[in-house]
Amino acid sequence: MAAAAAAGAGPEMVRGQVFDVGPRYTNLSYIGEGAYGMVCSAYDNVNKVRVAIKKISPFEHQTYCQRTLREIKILLRFRHENIIGINDIIRAPTIEQMKDVYIVQDLMETDLYKLLKTQHLSNDHICYFLYQILRGLKYIHSANVLHRDLKPSNLLLNTTCDLKICDFGLARVADPDHDHTGFLTEYVATRWYRAPEIMLNSKGYTKSIDIWSVGCILAEMLSNRPIFPGKHYLDQLNHILGILGSPSQEDLNCIINLKARNYLLSLPHKNKVPWNRLFPNADSKALDLLDKMLTFNPHKRIEVEQALAHPYLEQYYDPSDEPIAEAPFKFDMELDDLPKEKLKELIFEETARFQPGYRS
């Protein structure tokens, strides 16, 4: 834990890192770190609560700039109880001085990944967590956004079992017609939660990839272990087919990539493993919904509104309290091709509203 900075004593240090967030945020305490930044909790002297502050230093890398800009653009436009918001952003007053960006968010005690390492969940908890994931996802999908990296560590939890989806750095506007060349190379989302079509096709992607990830998360809540822990690309596919069985001819016809289709045709026939054999203690309604989410063919996979209306979630289902976005989200430009200098300018502009004396 960093010592509390005395008023006016300059930035606090946390594990050798400068955290320049005073005077409003003090009493910093280390939480963890990701690929390009550290997260601390801090005391907000204005709202009198502890908050989470993520320090991001992305400006050396085009990919990190892209992810940072995506996350900020999306989260500043989203407003939903099951999606983490941005409360404040701290950065230098000029673009030349801006080396880091500090993002202030609600402090959540833990995440689903940490929880599943230590606790076996009751059916009631599984049901409530799944409902909140789908409630947040309904809003995301209504904005025409794909999260693309749903996994237990991106689901934040607090002691009252509130759940918030975080990390929109890989999110995209849904565009089933656009052929994202190089899709697989830039697709760094965790393999275990990846839909089979991501490994088999490169053309376009749809909201059904997020539903697949939610199915993987439900299976993990039922058993405290990942359902498809593939060691590499082909191993991942083999794990999936080992449980779902061989795809039907109709399902194979959806695979545009001939090499991928021929690979699947070359494999020995596998039978589907019954879900109640894998999860003998699970609620039968939970397994019915799991089956509809972990469907090989993305066109037959359940959609988020149908999933919310499934009998497993009937005690929570309330369409009048499951809000959607006001308007579909649009990125003005494809960020993939922009140089990091341009992305830095866009991050600077996007964060201006939090600067003292800002006038829109």
Rank of each mutant, 00 (worst) to 15 (best):
R191W: 06
Y131C: 00
W212L: 14
F168D: 01
Y263G: 11
L267P: 06
D336M: 03
V273E: 15
K203Y: 09
Y64Q: 15
E305W: 08
L335Q: 14
S248K: 10
L28K: 04
Y30K: 08
L150I: 02
A307S: 14
P323M: 04
Q105E: 14
S122P: 04
A309I: 11
N45C: 11
T295L: 10
R79W: 07
D149C: 01
H80Q: 14
P247T: 14
L107C: 03
I140V: 09
A282W: 02
G16C: 12
D167M: 05
L156A: 14
L335W: 08
T181W: 11
A219Y: 07
T159W: 04
A219T: 12
I126K: 08
R50N: 12
C127G: 09
I209G: 08
K117P: 03
N281R: 05
S122C: 12
S213W: 01
F329N: 09
Q355Y: 03
I198L: 12
T185W: 05
L241P: 04
Y316S: 00
L28S: 05
D100V: 14
G169M: 03
L146P: 00
Y358M: 10
D111Y: 13
L121D: 06
L346F: 00
K138R: 11
E81P: 07
I227R: 03
M199R: 02
G182H: 13
P280N: 06
L264D: 03
G204W: 14
E303Q: 00
I255G: 06
G230P: 03
K55L: 13
L200T: 04
R191G: 05
E334P: 10
T181K: 09
D124W: 00
P11N: 09
N47M: 10
K272M: 08
M108C: 01
E345G: 00
H120C: 12
T185D: 04
S57C: 11
K270P: 09
F228E: 00
S213I: 08
D111I: 00
D332Q: 05
E349Q: 05
A2Y: 07
K48G: 13
P152N: 02
Y233R: 07
A3W: 07
L290S: 07
L241Y: 09
T118E: 05
A9Y: 01
K207I: 09
Y131D: 00
S266H: 04
F296E: 00
D124Y: 13
G85L: 01
K138V: 07
N262Y: 14
H299S: 08
T63R: 14
D111A: 14
N47G: 12
A282S: 14
A6T: 13
K151E: 09
G182S: 02
L163Y: 03
G242W: 00
A35S: 15
L267A: 03
K292S: 08
L265H: 03
A143Y: 11
R77D: 03
G245P: 01
Q97R: 15
Q132Y: 01
L112I: 07
S202E: 09
L134Y: 10
V104R: 01
N144H: 09
P268V: 09
S266R: 15
G85F: 12
P247R: 04
T185S: 14
E33Q: 10
K285T: 08
D124M: 07
I56K: 12
Y316R: 00
P323E: 07
I84R: 14
P319S: 09
V273H: 03
D111C: 06
E349W: 00
V304C: 09
A325W: 04
K344D: 09
L338S: 08
Y205M: 12
Y193H: 12
P196R: 11
S223N: 10
D288P: 02
G8N: 02
D336F: 04
C161M: 05
K99D: 03
Y233I: 09
D162W: 00
Y139F: 14
I211L: 06
D318K: 00
H299C: 09
L156E: 09
V104N: 04
I90K: 12
P328S: 11
S223D: 08
A195C: 08
L107E: 14
N201I: 15
L155P: 06
P319N: 04
K259Y: 05
H180E: 10
E71P: 15
F329P: 00
L69N: 06
V21I: 07
K285V: 07
I211T: 01
A171E: 03
L244Y: 01
Y36P: 05
H180I: 12
Y233W: 06
T159I: 11
A307I: 00
Y317Q: 00
Y43Q: 13
V51W: 09
M221P: 09
Q306S: 06
I31E: 15
G182N: 09
A171G: 04
P247E: 07
D337R: 03
K203G: 11
L289N: 09
D251A: 13
P229K: 00
I347A: 09
F59Y: 14
Y25S: 02
D162T: 05
Q17D: 12
A309L: 02
L163S: 11
T160A: 02
K292F: 07
I56T: 12
N238R: 05
S57M: 14
I133F: 14
D149A: 15
V273L: 12
S223A: 14
G136T: 02
K259S: 05
N224C: 05
M293I: 14
G245F: 05
H178C: 09
I347H: 15
F228S: 02
L264A: 06
E341D: 14
W212P: 10
E350S: 02
I240E: 02
A35V: 12
R261W: 11
V18Q: 06
L308H: 02
I209F: 14
Y263K: 07
L137G: 04
L264Q: 14
Q236Y: 02
